[in-house]
């Protein structure tokens, strides 16, 4: 792995929780769903997440309808533009896999290290030869640190190998948590990313990025999401579940903002406490050239780069987060 200036964008917007699209899905109103699908393809999303949440009531019917509805928009949807079936209702996942154009590129989002998830969902991966997001969640809940993330990843990885599922079907999601809730988790995510090749050789990586800014005022959320993404790209993430309507984010993941990715690289190389970030430090040293590039001089930055720098400070715990973090002087 090395710095990824371009990664695959999984659009998160088709979501039953959304005020715009949620009612349309419930009422089986195809128009708004199809409009959003067009928008997301137009924006450059490579994969579309179809999030039905728990979908306890008639989830299978709803997912089958949703897959068919988005596939009507464009013959590439469900194949060249794969779908991610995102619900905790396993019957709904099955129903989606049955009607999707190409199950082999389709994702089950997600399979966790919880027994029931491993036992009921992993066989579906085998049956349909599809892909899946490995969500690092165990019976005990969200892992507290890097080691517990590793244990979860190993459990899922071993279960997949046991069933003869190829490693490259697995996309590890180390779980992003909000910076305003627990900074240590934001850091633990960064420390875990470089370890994925060790814990799960051959597997890929992804995450639900936008959660990092949950609790932050809506208009400021992109100001945290972008910088966190840039750091992930330096650390070799390969896909990310993101807001397809965030134009700046789409530019970033499509390689149009290399300067911001490099800014993240220089920040990680020169400004982190190596005791707190041993894995990140080792990764930067072994896989990138940022150590040889100059340290950032904040007084030389302006506009977007200055905002990114301020956000790097709060995302790595150098400065305590508050809603006014962008107004602080550096």
């Amino acid at each position: 792995m090395a710095v990824n200036y371009e990664i695959l964008a999984i659009g998160e917007n088709i979501n039953i929780m959304s005020k715009v699209i949620g009612p349309a899905i419930k009422e089986r109103n195809a128009k708004p769903v199809q409009k959003m699908t067009e928008d997301l393809i137009e924006a450059g999303c490579d994969i579309l997440d179809l999030n039905l949440g728990p979908a306890r009531k008639a989830g299978d019917e709803m997912m089958a309808w949703l897959v068919k509805t988005v596939q009507e928009v464009d013959p590439r949807v469900g194949d060249e533009i794969p779908l991610a079936l995102d619900t905790t209702n396993t019957e709904a996942v099955k129903a989606g896999l049955k009607v999707v154009r190409n199950p082999e590129v389709t994702f089950i989002n997600s399979i966790s290290a919880q027994k029931e998830s491993l036992n009921t969902r992993m066989p579906l991966v085998k049956e349909y030869n599809c892909r899946f997001v490995a969500l690092l969640l165990s019976e005990e809940g969200i892992p507290r640190d890097v080691n517990e993330r590793g244990a979860c990843a190993a459990d899922i990885y071993n279960k997949a190998l046991e069933l003869g599922i190829p490693e490259n079907k697995m996309y590890i999601d180390p779980i992003v948590l909000p910076v305003s809730v627990d900074l240590n988790q934001v850091i633990a995510f960064l420390e875990f990313l470089p370890l994925i090749p060790d814990f799960a050789p051959g597997a890929s990586s992804t995450c639900g990025l936008s959660n990092v800014s949950n609790g932050t005022p809506t208009e400021l959320r992109p100001k945290l999401n972008g910088p966190y993404q840039a750091i992930h790209m330096v650390l070799g993430i390969e896909t990310s579940i993101i807001d397809g309507y965030d134009k700046a984010m789409m530019d970033l993941v499509k390689g149009k903002k290399k300067n911001l990715v490099d800014l993240a690289g220089r920040f990680l190389a020169h400004e982190l406490d190596e005791e707190k970030f041993p894995n990140v430090a080792m990764y930067i040293e072994a896989n990138t050239d940022y150590k040889n590039q100059p340290k950032i001089d904040p007084s030389s930055l302006e506009g977007e780069e200055l905002e990114y720098y301020k956000s790097f400070l709060v995302l790595t715990g150098k400065v305590l987060y508050s809603h006014s973090w962008l107004e602080m002087s550096v």
């Binding site: 305003s180 305590l320 987060y321 508050s322 809603h323 006014s324 107004e327 602080m328």
Partner: peptide
């Protein structure tokens, strides 16, 4: 909440 505490100090100072 540590973040809200900081935010309030900033608002008061502003």
């Amino acid at each position: 909440d540590v973040n809200l505490a900081k935010q309030l100090n900033i608002l008061i100072e502003n």
